[in-house]
Design a protein around this nucleic acid. Structure first.
Length: 167
DNA sequence: CCCTGATTCGC
DNA sequence: GCGAATCAGG
């Protein structure tokens, strides 16, 4: 298939709508994403808010490093919250609150290590509030350590299946 | 390994 | 002009 006026027009539209090359290729049909990209370049279109990519190549925000004052040795291990429990865990609705104030650098021994935000982003922080014995503060502990799914599901079949996972 | 766009280069 | 192969990155 060649690039008819219609197809080129559609390509332009989709590209500037923010679709990825592969998505456009799939929608146009008969072309690969390489063909789409090649055409895009030839048309002089390029640079665009790409989804799923900050597209922030060049400058990489030179880690300013916060003031920091305490916690000379921050714990390395990052505890991860248990999020995969049974189906349906809507009840939990703490969320939001005050954004974490602790960074991986300022995170102290007795600070809540509940992750706030996307760890892949640079504004990622930890809850940072006081934590007791465990790694999390009172509130986040409740979220992290939910009872192993209360009632329901306790039949022989379920039990057998759940046990098999640990063999 | 999935994805993204960018570039090259034989056709 | 075209696009597969390849590159560079998240």
């Amino acid at each position: 298939m060649g690039w008819t006026d219609e197809r080129v027009e559609l390509l332009k539209k989709l590209w500037q709508d923010g679709l990825s090359a592969s998505q456009i290729a799939k929608q146009l049909g008969g072309v690969t994403r390489n063909a789409v990209i090649g055409k895009v370049h030839r048309l002089g279109l390029s640079g665009r808010a790409t989804p799923s990519k900050p597209a922030r190549t060049v400058f990489k925000a030179p880690r300013p490093a916060r003031p920091v004052s305490a916690a000379p040795s921050a714990p390395r291990r990052i505890a991860e919250p248990v999020s995969s429990l049974g189906p349906q865990t809507a009840p939990v609705r703490y969320v939001d609150e005050t954004p974490g104030t602790a960074t991986v650098l300022t995170l102290g021994a007795h600070m809540c290590k509940w992750p706030i935000g996307d760890p892949s982003l640079d504004n990622f922080t930890f809850c940072g509030r006081r934590s007791g014995e465990g790694p999390y503060c009172h509130e986040h502990s409740q979220v992290a350590y939910q009872p192993a799914q209360t009632k329901k599901r306790s039949g022989p079949a379920e039990l057998a299946r759940s046990l098999r996972r640990y063999i």
